[in-house]
């Protein structure tokens, strides 16, 4: 800061003018970019929201952003679909199930990796690389064959287990990073006081790790809520699909397209999640970046 002011006072008036113009240009440039960023990110969703409140005819006839004859027909047509209602419930069940199962498997494993030295600790490295090596896309066909062989096609539990497998490595990684920051002195103190392992974990470790567990719960839920490839592979009957697959089928219908309906469907899969996200943005942003890095 002081270096900056010194250099400014040494400039001639001409140079100072050029510097001021440059600063002004730079500020304007940044604002233009930020405006573009907002348009790029939000406009597609807002335009979809606008279409979802139009009548089918108005989608082409009424170009305005604010619908001139706002209607809930689009939403009503989606809610009237048997497929949407069951898919919504399936998505909720599978999402919550995946969160719970992921945490149930990841918390003990991460705790063991952090607090104990045992053979098999080197497997932790595998957890970092596997999800990179094996994308969900590569799982489609093999898991489909496995599910057919086990007779587990079309069951929500199959989806929950499959999704848990894809989120688990990341969940363990995030939790390991988190447990490392729980001071072991706290636990040792509890141990001296006579608390056995289950008690220590319950009263010392878990309360401290709560933010990390919320992050992982939400990331697992997002994975299950949005996953398409594995649902495509592991379900075949209408009653067992989740929302993305149902939405995909809606786009495949031929004939006169129900554009407001499609828009309403998309919005209804996004909006609940945005509300959850806004409450816990802090955790999730950290989770995404560290998950991406690790």
């Amino acid at each position: 800061m002081s270096a900056q002011t010194r250099s400014r006072s040494q400039r001639t008036p001409g140079e100072r003018f050029v510097a001021a113009v440059r600063r002004r240009l730079r500020r304007t440039g940044i604002w233009v970019v930020l405006a573009f960023l907002a348009v790029w990110t939000i406009f597609p969703i807002l335009l979809t929201l606008s279409i979802s409140f139009k009548t089918r005819a108005d989608v082409s006839a009424d170009p305005g952003f604010i619908p001139s004859n706002p209607t809930l027909q689009g939403y009503a047509s989606v809610l009237a679909q048997e497929g949407f209602r069951s898919a919504f419930i399936n998505s909720l069940v599978v999402g919550l199930g995946t969160s719970v199962l992921t945490l149930a498997l990841a918390v003990p494993a991460a705790y063991a990796f952090v607090r104990f030295r045992f053979r098999g600790r080197h497997l932790l490295l595998l957890f970092t690389l596997l999800p990179r090596l094996i994308p969900g896309l590569g799982l489609m066909v093999p898991l489909y064959r496995l599910a057919v062989w086990l007779g587990a096609i079309d069951q929500l539990l199959t989806l929950i287990v499959a999704f848990t497998g894809t989120v688990l490595p990341l969940a363990v990684w995030l939790l390991v990073g988190f447990f490392q920051h729980v001071p072991r002195e706290l636990e040792e103190a509890a141990m001296v006081d006579g608390a056995a392992l289950p008690k220590r974990v319950r009263y010392v470790v878990l309360p401290l790790a709560l933010p990390a567990m919320i992050t992982i719960g939400v990331l697992a839920f997002r994975e299950a809520w949005n996953e398409f490839n594995l649902v495509l592979a592991l379900t075949s009957s209408p009653g067992s699909r989740t929302l993305p697959y149902e939405l995909f089928l809606m786009t495949q219908t031929t004939g006169f397209q129900n554009n407001p309906g499609q828009a309403a469907f998309a919005i209804m899969t996004i909006i609940p999640f945005i509300f959850v996200y806004l409450r816990i943005e802090r955790f999730v942003v950290g989770g995404i970046t560290s998950g991406a890095v690790k």
Binding site: G165, L168, P169
Partner: peptide
């Protein structure tokens, strides 16, 4: 190092389900 005062099996029991799940669901398909 490990925490003292626990059975040798504890870490294996704790981590086995996750390792098993990942092997079956990610390694087997490959």
């Amino acid at each position: 190092g490990s925490l003292v005062g626990h059975s040798k099996a504890t870490p294996y029991v704790l981590s086995a389900p996750a390792i098993l799940a990942v092997s079956v669901l990610l390694a087997f398909p490959v």
